[in-house]
Design a protein around this nucleic acid. Structure first.
Lengths: 152, 152
DNA sequence: TCCATAAACATGTATATACATCTAAGTATC
DNA sequence: GATACTTAGATGTATATACATGTTTATGGA
């Protein structure tokens, strides 16, 4: 049977059902919306999330911070740098000299305050667009999926 | 009221409900699982997805490829480079000289063939871990969410 | 005390992501 | 047919992501 690359091939699994591909696709599109909403205050979605977690929980060990974010420790090390450069966070030492303690600075907290209404706006758009039922289903299935990926 | 950064603050929205933060967190963890599963054949999750789409649909215009992936055009330009360097894809010109036509090479198709069973394995782990109902709910809510982010 | 091990974080490297902007090529209007 | 406009991609820059590995500090025996 001859087959050239210009023709589709039905022998491959439909990528339509790939959990990872669908997650990554949705995340790209949703992140663009949140990034756009937060652009007026100079924050990216990931940065807003990090500041919001710090605002909510107060000073945290860097390793605990990484766990909460579900972020590799080395990724967090890199992601902290832009926030540090802009003086939105502070890194202190613990008595245990290996440990870094991360906290918001005053400018960081002030920026978070200005960003929260922008977050509410874009979050509300998704809440409205999806409806309460689907939003709840989204958060619930994402949590279940994360738990499958990282049991315990 | 005095408040220092070491203490949590309940005045901030619970990041637990942020669609973007939850998507990004789940995507990080799930991508690590798919990346690990595909590592034996030297593919990342995103690369596998791109090859699988090309395998399924055959030669595509670069802009259509970006649309299907929900990926910014400039991101796709960059993401094609590692695949080109490894000779897994080919880029041809259209009659319209602005257009690039992307297709799998023979090595690319062969690699995809070896990768599919690895994908099936990890995909099956999520299918089993979530159950059919939640997997269906995941794909369905991700699709709805993507549509809210990018109407039309 | 000294050494092995472990824990916490940093660094080298590669990929993934997208906005702002640029270039090349096609289309339309006159 | 020359000029404006539009479309398709590429490039400059910055952030996001994580594996393999390195460094520093703490801990637990021998």
């Amino acid at each position: 049977m001859f087959m050239d690359d210009k023709q589709p091939d039905n022998s491959y699994p439909d990528i339509q059902v790939c959990a990872c591909a669908n997650l990554r696709r949705a995340t790209r599109l949703v992140t663009q919306a949140y990034d756009a909403a937060l652009r007026p205050v100079g924050l990216r979605a990931t940065q807003f999330t990090m500041l919001a977690v710090l605002g909510k929980r107060g000073q945290m060990r860097q390793s605990d911070f990484a766990d909460v974010l579900g972020m590799d420790g080395t990724t967090l090390t890199r992601n902290l740098q832009p926030l540090l450069k802009k003086d939105w966070i502070r890194i202190d030492r613990d008595e245990d000299q290996r440990v870094r303690l991360i906290s918001l600075t005053e400018p960081g907290r002030a920026l978070l305050d200005t960003a929260v209404p922008l977050w509410r706006e874009v979050q509300g758009q998704f809440q409205t667009g999806l409806g309460k039922t689907q939003m709840t289903a989204l958060l619930s299935t994402l949590s279940a999926t994360a738990n499958v990926a990282q049991p315990g």
